[in-house]
Amino acid sequence: MTIAPHILAIDDSFTIREMVSQTLRDAGFEVTTANDGQDGVEAFAGGRYDAVITDINMPRMDGFGVIETIRSGQGSPARVPILVLTTESGPKLKDRARKAGATGWIVKPFDDEALVSVLNRVTGRG
C-alpha cells in the first residue's frame, strides 16, 4: 500500500480551497488547506508535505512570502515543490515566481486534470 502524497493548499478563497482539495482528494492525494499565507507557513512547519500549492494575493502573508519562508528553512522540506496558483500570467509572473523560488505555477482557472497531472509530476507519482 502506498501512502498518498500530502499536499498543502493555501488560498484565501474558500471556493478555490474547496475546488483544489476536492479535485486532489478525488485523485488520491491527502490535502491540508490553509486560509492565508501565515496559516500556510504555520501548517507547513507543523507537518510533512510532498508539495505546496499557494495563491499569491492573500491577506497577512502573500504567496511570495510563503515561498520565501519555506525556502529559507533547513533541509529537505525547504526544497519541497511549490506551485503558485494565480490568475496572473505572462513572463513577468514566471520571472517573479522563479526568483521567489516557486517550482511552477498553475494559472486559474485551472483544469482539474491539469492540476492532478502537475501534482502527480511534482510529487513523483508519474
Binding site: D111, A114, S117, V118
Partner: peptide, 11 residues
C-alpha cells in the same frame, strides 16, 4: 501575454 504565452499546463 496570457494569450500569447500559453502557461497553462496541458497534460
Amino acid at each position: 501575454q496570457s494569450a500569447d504565452v500559453d502557461l497553462t499546463f496541458e497534460p
